[in-house]
Design a protein around this nucleic acid. Structure first.
Length: 648
RNA sequence: GGCGGCGUAGCUCAGUUGGUCAGAGCAUGCGGCUCAUAUCCGCAGAGUCGGGGGUUCGAAUCCCUCCGCCGCCA
């Protein structure tokens, strides 16, 4: 559209829903985004890389209640998990947005208000089958079951019939504008096959979209009509504008909006390729350039799911092989857009063959020869011969192709090209046989040239892999005694021959030690290990002072009444005697104790915990309990104690 | 049921507008080197390009049909 060179790049991941801990799928999207961001920075662009978490909605309300926390507390915890993983994976995001942040909520409300005034949002009545799990009304065409109910086609659970007052987005008005937009921007949805799906979906006609709920409390209130909350998808999608400064940092927003690429999993394509541009058209924003739907990672050819217990925990792999091997594997194995199959065999094979044998061993053998023949000093090269020139030219051609492929988000193809060059460097050494020349003093100059050339090639490879393997790239440059890091050298400044003779190189360590398959499987699949490593961050001891401890008002409480909270499996509503007052608390102990078990019993509660509403029931305190496999075990006293007694 | 896509060496896949297009990587076998992480380099073998029919001087590449698989929608 704009003819002039665009000097900015704005890339996003979806914001991840905090009802789940991060897994390999989250890692995959985010790694793609990171590689693109790093590459664009090398190009000299101002890059804005946004990721974050989606924290509203019924599912989170529910998940939090089951854990006996407030939704915000649950979100706070899960956010830490995401941030930890991103750090381990060297994700260079610029901002981590949370939809519970004040500026986001305000921004969403403002846009909502704007569309309401414009008439693109109107109030109506909605009746439909609603799936609690998917937080979605079922499509009208889902057939009735024999018993007259409907089953959610996505999750297989039974839906409930709801009628509610609702605000609607006038999506129907945007059918033609969307089709026109797709026609004018064939790259808007990638890969192409997804674009076809989107277009054919829109051609079938679009109905107005219900975008508020009265059944959900944990969400952004509709401005001026707070018994409605804004539907989680309308809320979440707008993170891409609020996270880029809309309504709170005009300069940031001006600089980066519209986004260059929204990376998403193919499951959320419709939201991003249809609803989102329609919302943006309505609000008068320019539209993003590309929505890229990547594929799924399967585990040994089958879909990963919690129920199958085959979800891959990235932490175990990271511990064993480091971030770069995982980043490389995920980006190299499969073109973005297709499904991939993750097997331990495949992973180990690729890491050993590409990273240990091809790349790692090349670095090792080259540097070792410089140590052996030139005492670790980069030699002054002798005259350049045809074969040397060819290697340099091959590099230039490779670099040009790799850049073009990175520009096109074709990461696996880019890596493939780099590896073709890598093979050529290994062949160059095999052809030149520097180890033979080293035995003849009169060949010293020739030897110097060959090793110099090989070092240049290694340095160049280090540069090209930087977006995908930043740590390894830095290690390689560090071995070469470079004063800069590859990430600090702009593409336009990079030159194959910018290697300084006389510099000392460092003694290399194996970049990627070969992995033994059996050992790897043993370590990664050890069942206890997963739990251990997952718990580690939370169990790290952090001291508090006695004064801090004193702030907690721990009291003995006696249970007066207890009842189950309908619709939950874990929650009990308890009336408790605290000596001089009676309180109500919600406790997640119903899987271990029935209401009758607890009446008359005494235990310890934190009396000055900030009250919270859990599943619509106010909780004025929390009881202390041990948790084993998600089940609560309450510590009781071995004799009777007067209610209200302080516990220290 | 509708729309779209796919079916090419043991495996994963490339194959622009029909004419060195029958290919690459991995795996397998053999040979070479020894600087290197039992690494590296070279050579070799198998495919009636899902089946059948058609258009054409000529089709993996276009058309029809059948079989099988996948995606989206219903």
């Amino acid at each position: 559209m704009e003819g002039k060179f665009k000097n900015t790049f704005y890339v996003t991941t979806p914001i991840y829903y905090v009802n789940d801990v991060p897994h390999i799928g989250h890692a995959y999207t985010t790694i793609i985004a990171d590689a693109l961001a790093r590459y664009q920075r090398l190009c000299g662009k101002k890059v804005y890389f946004l990721t974050g978490t989606d924290e509203h909605g019924q599912k989170i309300e529910k998940a939090a209640a089951e854990k006996g926390m407030s939704p915000k507390e649950l979100a706070d915890r899960v956010v830490v998990r995401f941030k930890e993983l991103w750090q381990k994976l060297n994700i260079s995001y610029d901002y981590f947005i949370r939809t519970t942040e004040e500026f986001h909520e305000r921004g969403v409300q403002k846009i909502f208000q704007k569309l309401l005034e414009k008439g693109d949002i109107y109030k109506g009545k909605y009746q439909g089958w609603y799936c609690v799990s998917e937080e979605n009304f079922l499509s009208e065409d889902v057939p009735l079951e024999p018993d007259g109910s409907k089953i959610c086609p996505d999750c297989g659970r039974q839906a409930t019939l709801l009628e509610e007052e609702s605000y609607f987005f006038r999506l129907s008005a945007y059918q033609q504008p969307l089709l026109d937009f797709y026609a004018a921007n064939p790259q808007f949805v990638r890969p192409q096959s997804r674009m076809n799906e989107v277009v054919s979906f829109v051609r079938q006609g679009l109905k107005d979209l219900s975008i508020t709920r009265t059944t959900v409390r944990w969400g952004i209130p509709v401005p001026g009509d707070p018994k409605h909350t804004i539907y989680v998808w309308f809320d979440a999608l707008h993170n891409y504008v609020t996270g880029a400064g809309y309504d709170w940092n005009p300069e940031l927003f001006e600089t980066f909006w519209p986004a260059d690429v929204h990376l998403i999993g193919k499951d959320i394509l419709r939201f991003h390729a249809i609803f989102w541009p329609a919302f943006l058209m309505a609000a008068g924003f320019p539209l993003p350039r590309t929505v890229f739907g990547h594929g799924w990672w399967l585990k040994d050819e089958t879909k990963m799911s919690k129920s199958k217990g085959n979800v891959l925990d990235p932490h175990l792999i990271l511990e064993k092989v480091g971030a770069d091997a995982l980043r490389y594997f995920l980006l190299r194995e499969v073109p973005v857009g297709l499904d991939g199959s993750f097997s331990h065999e495949g992973f180990v094979h690729r890491v050993n063959s590409d990273l240990a044998n091809d790349l790692g061993n090349l670095v090792q053998r080259t540097l070792t020869m410089v140590f052996n023949y030139f005492d670790g000093e980069i030699p002054v090269p002798g005259e350049e011969q045809d074969s040397d020139r060819k290697l340099a030219e091959h590099f230039e051609e490779t670099a040009a192709r790799v850049y073009a492929l990175y520009d096109d988000y074709a990461l696996s193809r880019a890596l493939e090209e780099i590896w073709v060059f890598l093979n050529a460097v290994n062949k160059y050494l095999a052809d030149q046989e520097p180890w033979k020349l080293a035995k003849k003093a009169e060949e010293k100059n020739r030897l110097a040239r060959i090793l110099f050339q090989a070092l240049c090639a290694v340095r160049g490879v280090g540069y090209l892999i930087y977006p995908v393997m930043p740590e390894t790239a830095e290690k390689i440059w560090n071995f070469l005694g470079e004063s800069k890091k590859p990430g600090e050298v702009l593409k336009s400044w990079f030159n194959f021959y910018h290697l300084t003779s006389g510099n000392r190189i460092r003694k290399p360590e194996a970049l990627f030690p070969r992995i033994d398959l059996m050992e790897f499987i043993g370590e990664v699949e050890k069942p206890g290990k997963a739990i251990e490593s997952r718990k580690k961050p939370e169990e790290k001891m952090e001291y508090i002072t006695y004064d801090e401890f004193k702030k907690m008002d721990l009291r003995v409480a006696r249970v007066l009444t207890a009842e189950r909270i309908p619709g939950t499996s874990k929650l009990l509503k308890l009336q408790i005697d605290l000596g001089n007052e009676t309180r109500q608390i919600v406790a997640g102990v119903a899987e271990t104790y029935s209401p009758e078990d607890l009446v008359g019993k005494e235990f310890i509660v934190i009396a000055n915990l900030k009250p919270a509403v859990i599943r619509g029931v106010e909780s004025q305190g929390m009881l202390l309990a041990a948790e084993i496999d998600g089940k609560a075990i309450i510590p009781f006293f071995d004799r009777e104690v007067p209610p209200g007694t302080k516990v220290k």
